[in-house]
Design a protein around this nucleic acid. Structure first.
Lengths: 141, 141
DNA sequence: CGATATTGTTATATGCAACAACAATCGCTA
DNA sequence: TAGCGATTGTTGTTGCATATAACAATATCG
């Protein structure tokens, strides 16, 4: 069958991202976490009192879309918010949130290791810098 | 700001795919095409009389999800279906479909060139084989 | 002080993909 | 050749991620 698509890096990028997202999503589901939620746990864990807006900017998630995401994490007693001033609120992990963050990190690191292992050795070192260059080029907001 | 995420290839993969998808999507929108539709046009163009199921298998789109996709392309007079037997139907591009396919291919190739240009030269050649290895490993159905 | 920007929020829409179920049909084999 | 299992196209529904527009409250800076 003629496949005119897999010669395109953009297409392969899409396929690769889809396939890995599905797999990682499955594993995180065992912690009852979605990928976006896991990434929030990681960032908040490393940056206590970060603001919802700042978090959204870092993760490239719109302010509006952070709302239901944080609501769910809050309902699960994983994060807490407390007012910084009358407008902003800082996010911190609860003890439960930190514990789950650690588990999630374990899952993610294991998964990343498998992902990297799929890449032929001679290309391995080039993957991360190449990908980072793609999305970090032209993102000055 | 602490960013524990961009050291993960999987995360960078997601970000890179999102960012490129958004950009390519915008350009294809000028042809009133979504990415999935453009990929269908390309495959059908190279494989006339391909079956909807086979097309779905190749693009990793479920049979069920091909239905609205093809319905839209058919409504736009870009593809036609004709019965192969009582069960299967072959897909072909109309003249209009072929013309649009060519335009879409132009857009895609231009975009891919820009994408590759963002990657530092020393990593460039490694990108495609690395990505293909990621999604083509463990996909024997 | 006052204009401007930022924050958190609501509501709504789109694209993509997953799953379960079903009738019709094909194709192989017993 | 009759029948069973696999395949095809389809419907309906769900979930996730993302996008936009709008708004009130508040902060910041000239």
């Amino acid at each position: 069958m003629q496949d005119p698509l897999s010669r395109f890096p953009g297409y392969s990028l899409r396929r690769a991202a889809n396939s890995t997202a599905a797999q990682l999503g499955q594993r995180l589901a065992e912690l009852d976490l979605r990928q976006s939620e896991a990434s929030v746990l990681l960032i908040v864990g490393d940056n206590p009192h970060i603001t919802a807006s700042a978090l959204g900017r870092q993760l490239d998630i719109q302010r509006a879309n952070m709302v239901p995401l944080l609501k769910r994490l809050e309902a699960a007693k994983l994060v807490e918010r407390h007012a910084i001033d009358g407008k902003s609120q800082g996010l911190v992990l609860t003890a439960k949130g930190m514990a789950l963050r650690d588990k999630a990190l374990g899952v993610i690191e294991a998964f990343e290791a498998e992902l990297v292992a799929r890449v032929p050795a001679q290309h391995r070192a080039h993957l991360l810098p190449a990908l980072n260059a793609i999305w970090q080029t032209g993102e000055e907001s």
